[in-house]
Nucleic acid binder design. Sequence first.
DNA 1: GGTGATACTGAGAATTAGTCGCAAAATAAA
DNA 2: TTTATTTTGCGACTAATTCTCAGTATCACC
Lengths: 149, 149
Amino acid sequence: MNQEQKIFKEFLQKKGLKLTKPRQIILEEVFLTHKHFNVDQLYDQIKIKYSNVSRATIYRTMPLLIEASLIKNALRCEAKDHYEHIYGHERHLHLICNKCGTIIEAEISDMEQLLNQIAETKKFHIEDYNVGARGVCVNCLKDGTNSNE
Amino acid sequence: MNQEQKIFKEFLQKKGLKLTKPRQIILEEVFLTHKHFNVDQLYDQIKIKYSNVSRATIYRTMPLLIEASLIKNALRCEAKDHYEHIYGHERHLHLICNKCGTIIEAEISDMEQLLNQIAETKKFHIEDYNVGARGVCVNCLKDGTNSNE
DNA sequence: GGTGATACTGAGAATTAGTCGCAAAATAAA
DNA sequence: TTTATTTTGCGACTAATTCTCAGTATCACC
């Protein structure tokens, strides 16, 4: 059992919940890819490999993974929530291209200190944060064509 | 006619559109409050004061106001998009309390330079950005009670 | 290995923010 | 006023997410 599984199992046990097969499958699949994902993509991936885990179960598992600090709700794109794992990963910034929809990730580096400084002035305790920017990516800047529309 | 109206009217004219009464009402109401809002709240406010502007019209007007750089889609809370006006306002950071749902605004100060530096390394051109943090606000930190649940 | 209490699941119904189509109404120019 | 065009409100629609519920798995305890 790997680290994520341990963490998740402990978390569940503390809440009197169980690490069932569907939950294991979801967890495994979530940590298999290193990019953000939405429930639909996850559902499709799982459907290919394993028998079936219903969408409802996936939707129900996301908040658990979030509460266990394994993943976070990172951004919203095309009217869908997108998640990404936190565990074992640096936080990063999302640059979303308004033309082609590409999502570029960039390091956040000093952002965190800055945010904490700001929060301190409001006596706010930050647990999680998101930084997202929208604009135009290199490709779209270059050729001016909209690869999307 | 105030500045916002001028800007909006010019913007609309450039696109061959008109500053109609519903659009005026929406614009006015949007700039009346200095906090973020969602379509529902806007709809309710308008319904109290004026006869009626349909939800559809409000939904249709938001993208126009955004394109005119008068407002922006600032954050998502309780599964709803929230907007805020940009015109005449500094950009700011949103601190959303996970316990009571309060949204605190804070100055962003040096954030913008930092973001642009980062974007540059990816040759990305930023048009808009959002910074949001979640955590616990002073009040909830203090008394430990959930003023929300 | 049964048994009972409880948690979990899948399927599909329900909900809800947001969009769309359309016929009627407003607009603005001629 | 006429005409061409844009808008509007209404209600139907879409799609993501949540909920319900009846059946199933799990696990502690016998």
